[in-house]
Amino acid sequence: MKRSLALAMLLVMSLAPSARAANEADYKAAYAAAEAASKEAAGMRNQWTVTVSALAAAKKAADGGDFDRAVAAAREAEVLAKASIFQATSEKEAWKAMEIR
């Protein structure tokens, strides 16, 4: 009984960090990562409108104190920005396959 209680406590403790609410520091880290990827995409002249919207949504949520939503939006922005970087990189050569010859 004692053993299973200890195991249950361990389980709860291991899950605790992922279940906690996001704070401002989490948001800042997520936003910085998203912003860096977004700047890289813009530098490649391949920014997506949805990345810009997700970044704006993250900022708006953070300004309203909703850091859970802010972190989620920032992470979404980062993923979108990375996809646009991948697109720009692969299209450097891939466009030639589309050409009428």
Partner: peptide, 21 residues
């Protein structure tokens, strides 16, 4: 200009040619 015309862009992954060619 040709490269721009055939290059896919945006979340929809469309080039000018996707629609107009």
């Amino acid at each position: 200009g040709k490269r721009y015309f055939y290059t896919r862009r945006g979340q929809m992954n469309f080039s000018c040619a996707s629609c107009h060619v």
